[in-house]
């Protein structure tokens, strides 16, 4: 770990000023990922700007029926918040599928969006990695890539985004509120994370002196028919091989609205508007789910060890949509896949 300066931001504007003053600075809230990366010398910030005491911990309903969540709300508080449990149980479920209780207690909503990949080469400074050191090469491409991406990859990087929460947020059409030197802006969560392209070292579209202030959930919560299914190498406390967030609106057995997002398969939560459109107006049957899965996985490419992910994802999508349609969402507390 390198030596670093520490500063505590007094308000959001102060945090932005401090960020702008030091290009090597990083914001810290829960620190559940950043501290790990600092211990491994992957992140070497010149300064940590502590934002953990900023007043960004509210969960508020807005006049138009959407919900505004402060960037510093702890993951566990959010998962167990009555409004989330009632109106957005898909989000609560996805959060509880991630990490451990102790980590969720520390981790903030904004920090969760900023999680970096768990690619083993990214974590090991003795190996080449384009994300950690641009142009040094991608070790995963022809190395250990069982956990790696099958969608939206580039010749430079096949890393995945490790977040569960973001997958549900993508499905729910969440917006990210951002503040910077030139004021506030809002972008869709699906535009917040980037594909690796030839700049895999840039994970998100957050500007250099910008800060996430909150997340906004649109009024449609898909609280009746939803499920979050995470497939991993053990039943808890492991990153997703594949995860699926599914949300449906049904009229009888007919699908009037559908949302799907995948985790563990790409550099960002993976959505396909085409796949969702294909479900609308269809009966909620395995055949239609299967066709939607194929559309969602269109263009998948695999490397030597992650070929299984395509079929696994296809089956997981069908299973999750079935759980959603039957209103029998996957439990994150039971020791089994429903």
């Amino acid at each position: 770990m390198n030596n670093f300066q520490y500063a505590r931001a007094t308000d959001v504007a102060d945090a932005i000023r401090l960020l702008a003053a030091d290009p090597g600075a990083k914001l810290i809230a829960g620190g559940t990922n950043l501290i790990d990366l600092m211990k491994e010398n992957v992140e070497r910030p010149s300064r940590l700007i502590d934002i953990s005491r900023l007043p960004l911990r509210k969960v508020e309903e807005t006049a138009d029926g959407s919900l505004r969540i402060g960037a510093l709300v702890p993951n566990s508080d959010l998962a167990y918040h009555p409004l989330i449990e009632q109106r957005y149980p898909l989000l609560a479920s996805a959060i509880l599928a991630g990490a451990s209780a102790q980590l969720r207690n520390m981790a903030s909503v904004g920090g969760n969006l900023m999680q970096r990949t768990r690619c083993v080469y990214f974590y090991d400074t003795a190996t080449p990695c384009n994300k950690r050191r641009p142009s040094s090469g991608c070790s995963a491409m022809d190395g250990l890539n069982r956990n790696h991406a099958i969608l939206g990859t580039s010749a430079a990087c096949i890393a995945t985004n490790p977040s569960d929460m973001s997958v549900a947020l993508a499905a729910l059409g969440a917006l990210v509120h951002i503040a910077g030197r030139s004021g506030e802006r809002t972008i869709a969560l699906t535009d917040f994370h980037r594909l690796p392209g030839d700049t895999p070292h840039v994970d998100t579209n957050l500007g250099t002196s910008e800060i996430i202030t909150g997340i906004e959930l649109p009024a449609r919560g898909f609280a009746q028919n939803y499920s979050y299914l995470k497939i991993r190498d053990r039943m808890s406390y492991a990153f997703a091989l594949v995860s699926v967030a599914a949300a449906l609106e049904l009229e009888g057995n007919a699908i009037s609205g559908a949302r799907m997002a995948l985790g563990g398969v790409a550099h960002k939560p993976w959505r396909s508007l085409e796949a969702e459109a294909a479900l609308r107006g269809q009966a909620a049957t395995p055949d239609h789910f299967s066709r939607a899965a194929d559309l969602l996985l269109q263009g998948a490419t695999t490397r030597s060890h992650n070929g299984f992910k395509v079929e696994l994802a296809r089956r997981a999508i069908v299973r999750t949509l079935t759980q959603a349609a039957n209103a029998t969402p996957q439990s994150q507390a039971h020791k089994k896949i429903a």
Binding site: R118, R234, K335
Partner: peptide, 23 residues
């Protein structure tokens, strides 16, 4: 291990999996 580097690549208990309570 990545034999191109002769290095253990999952040298931590996040990536080296042992059973947890749920298993």
């Amino acid at each position: 291990m990545d034999h191109r580097f002769g290095r253990i690549m999952n040298a931590n208990i996040a990536e080296y999996h042992i059973p947890v309570n749920a298993d």
